[in-house]
């Protein structure tokens, strides 16, 4: 099973949602702490292509 998806949009900028950004930041810090505790766990791959 393979599902391809594509979404291209020109979007309007909005003032930052500080609560949402804080929540995302907290989650990223939690992830980093969890990754540090489990160094053998496979990490996500982030590859810059251009």
């Amino acid at each position: 099973m393979v599902v391809h998806f594509k979404n291209t949009s020109i979007v309007s900028g909005k003032p930052v949602n500080k609560e949402k950004l804080a929540e995302l930041k907290r989650r990223r810090l939690e992830q980093q702490a969890e990754d540090a505790k489990n160094p053998d766990k496979p990490k996500f791959i982030l590859r810059r292509v251009s």
């Binding site: 393979v2 391809h4 594509k6 979404n7 291209t8 949009s9 020109i10 979007v11």
Partner: peptide
């Protein structure tokens, strides 16, 4: 800005 999300789920 133009944002583009392209991917595959398998």
């Amino acid at each position: 800005l133009e944002l583009d999300i392209v991917g595959t789920v398998f």
